[in-house]
């Protein structure tokens, strides 16, 4: 099939649990589609070449650079963005830990970092500091020096681990 760059396609995906649909050109990046077509502006764009990690979202359960994925590739997939985090009363434990450890300043890179951490802790519930730093090395933060972010992730992991032990 030959697809022209300005052909428009109807893209339907599951965004944060709800089915959403909008038009995209073949070349439209997923990040632009999410922000400007679907109106979820919490995901930010920092470099458009996959280095800074600010645009990270979760696609079918895996942390993904939304600047390196086309909107049409997300057809039929499950996409989670920062707007999916949180609980009824407000912030979830990971977000609260970020606030308590001063893990953000300007907050521009934070959405992507939260999504990576979210996915990482699902896979690796009891990480070492080295593993956390390794995971975070896919993100650039210019404000914090990373200390608060590392501390926040380790604190959440510990707290969740304690909860699990209490439940057993």
């Amino acid at each position: 099939m030959y697809i022209r760059h300005d052909d428009r396609h109807q893209v339907t995906l599951t965004l944060n649990g709800s089915e959403r649909s909008a038009h995209a050109e073949s070349r439209t990046q997923l990040c632009d589609f999410l922000r400007h077509q679907l109106g979820v502006t919490g995901t930010h764009v920092g470099c458009e070449h996959g280095v800074c990690g600010a645009c990270t979202v979760i696609v079918d359960g895996r942390a993904t650079r939304s600047c390196l994925m086309l909107a049409v590739q997300a057809e039929g997939r499950r996409v989670e963005t920062v707007e999916s985090l949180g609980e009824m009363e407000g912030l979830d434990d990971l977000q609260r830990a970020f606030r308590d450890h001063h893990a953000l300043q300007c907050g521009f890179c934070t959405a992507g970092i939260l999504m990576s951490c979210h996915e990482f802790l699902r896979r690796i519930p009891d990480p070492s500091e080295g593993e956390v730093r390794d995971m975070l090395s896919g993100h650039l933060c210019r404000c914090t020096g990373y200390t608060g972010i590392v501390q926040a992730v380790l604190a959440v992991a510990r707290r969740r681990q304690n909860h699990r032990e209490e439940e057993q």
Binding site: V82, L104, T110
Partner: peptide, 9 residues
């Protein structure tokens, strides 16, 4: 922080 952490900046 709350707004920034919820993607509401």
């Amino acid at each position: 922080d709350e707004a920034l952490l919820r993607g509401l900046g």
